[in-house]
Design a protein around this nucleic acid. Structure first.
Lengths: 136, 136
DNA sequence: CTAAATGCAAAGCATTTGCCTTGAC
DNA sequence: GTCAAGGCAAATGCTTTGCATTTAG
């Protein structure tokens, strides 16, 4: 069973499948990194130079609100996006180099419930995001 | 043994103790939350209305570069600051309400080294920051 | 056809910076 | 007295938005 593509999920959500949206969806489908809007726009523009940055902003916001993408803030002032349906993982971010390392740690996963419980905090539908920040 | 105040550390660092810096240092000393620049400025202005926002920005940046403060990005677009000398803790952030819960989990602390090792990533001088994000 | 989506440019915010004045040491 | 620090306003960088035009369904 293959996971549904971003485009599939756009259809499921009943989103209008415009030219720009198809291109942006494909760009994100192909991305193995965590592109920011400028990067997404650059890649989309390779397919269709008429796509504007404003549309990229509007589209990633729409996709995020539809649960298709997840927005990440890595501390460098711009938002980055990645497919929300990818298997869960955490991030190690080096603020000096901008390097982002993905990882999954079973013990950390197991700690999520425990921590929430200890704090009396309802984690339902939430996620723990782990950051290792190399400060200056 | 009492911990050195922010002002103490400014002196240790050889920073010039100007009026605005004294006030901003005291504001941060008194803060039990994670104030952003606007908030810090509002509190500082109560003591001295002539302090400008630009100075608050310059001062928190200086303090951060001096290791006196730590900058936090909680995903709402503005930076927040807290005393770097406070005992280590992580944060649970609810992006919907802006609520920030501090906590320390010994198991998570113990996992830091392990994770870094597993990734071949040098954590020296770094820190794991934990976020639980309630998305929309 | 009709409402939603796009492009473009202007507007918004948070933050930074240039420049001249003020003040700490 | 000197050079760093501060105030003010302009500039910057990322993101959003108003409006006229295009387009998916």
């Amino acid at each position: 069973m293959t996971l549904p593509t971003i485009l599939d999920r756009c259809e499921t959500q009943g989103l209008r499948l415009t030219g720009p949206r198809r291109v942006i969806a494909q760009v994100l489908e192909d991305a193995s990194d965590h592109p920011d809007v400028e990067t997404i726009h650059a890649r989309a523009a390779e397919q269709d130079p008429s796509i504007s940055v404003a549309t990229v902003y509007r589209t990633v916001k729409l996709f995020e609100e539809s649960g298709i993408l997840e927005r990440r803030e890595f501390g460098d002032g711009r938002a980055r996006y990645e497919d929300a349906e990818r298997e869960h993982h955490d991030h190690l971010i080096d603020l000096q180099t901008g390097e982002v390392i993905e990882f999954v740690d079973p013990e950390i996963e197991a700690l999520q419930e425990k921590i929430a419980e200890r704090l009396g905090y309802d984690l339902k539908g939430h996620r723990l995001e782990l950051f290792a920040v190399r400060r200056k």
